[in-house]
Design a protein around this nucleic acid. Structure first.
Lengths: 125, 125
DNA sequence: GTAAGTACCAACATTTTTGTAAGTATCAAA
DNA sequence: TTTGATACTTACAAAAATGTTGGTACTTAC
């Protein structure tokens, strides 16, 4: 009677949400917002390499999933704030864990990669 | 003097590794391998929707990063096993946490999404 | 008056990702 | 003997992601 979500199942709705939070920019947006509320431009400067378009799109998707909240002040020039919802904060924490785990292992990973390419060119047998 | 990795920095090498483990299939491969060693076909059946091509590609990338190990038995018909490395297991655990966090919130997310689209069509003011 | 900042959107172009179909060599079951 | 399983690879095609450019309407600083 109970429906148990399962990402390994193709039809499971969790797939799309997971794709949003693990998309190229989605996860970085969540991490960047962990420090607190940020407005659009500040967010963009914070995340190296995002284009306006991609940032907007990522923010919309995360907003639709209830991960972040958009607060538009009705002033001119425009002023819009973004912040994590409680659920967004929960998810962001895990994404940050993931990023930090990778950062901690980065040196080892880089060495490992290099040792493999050297092994390839080193012996032609 | 110390180099501190930072995903928010465009040039940081952690970006590519993060992209591999959070790619459409990369994360699911890691999760699927948490139960233990699996061979190619079993892995494919386990992960709903992967094509052979994408599974191969994801496995290669994760192997290059040292997340999984490929063990090819020299027999015919071919027999190849895949399993997590210690680092891969560490990363997989966090990816699973992320998936489970989303699965746990899925019902709420779905309701939230629906309430938004209803709100859009409900009032034309 | 000119330039820059604000938070976007839309059209279009490009790049990347992902999928599909076919082929490889061998063995075992029907 | 045809079929299916094994673990892939390659070429090609389609789809999705991402980038680029230009525009909006207004304000402030120079």
């Amino acid at each position: 009677m109970e429906f148990v979500p399962d990402v390994l199942n193709e039809k499971c709705g969790s797939r799309s949400v997971l794709n949003h939070v693990t998309s190229r920019w989605g996860g970085l947006v969540l991490i960047a917002l962990m420090d607190g509320t940020l407005r659009f431009s500040a967010l963009r400067r914070r995340i190296g390499g995002v284009s306006e378009r991609m940032l907007t799109q990522s923010l919309r998707l995360l907003e639709e999933d209830g991960m972040i909240e958009r607060i538009a002040h009705q002033v001119v020039p425009p002023h819009v704030d973004y912040r994590l919802t409680p659920m967004g904060a929960e998810v962001a924490r895990i994404v940050l864990d993931l990023a930090q785990c990778i950062e901690a292992n980065l040196e080892g990973i880089t060495r490992f990669r290099n040792s493999r390419v050297e092994a390839r060119s080193g012996n032609g047998s």
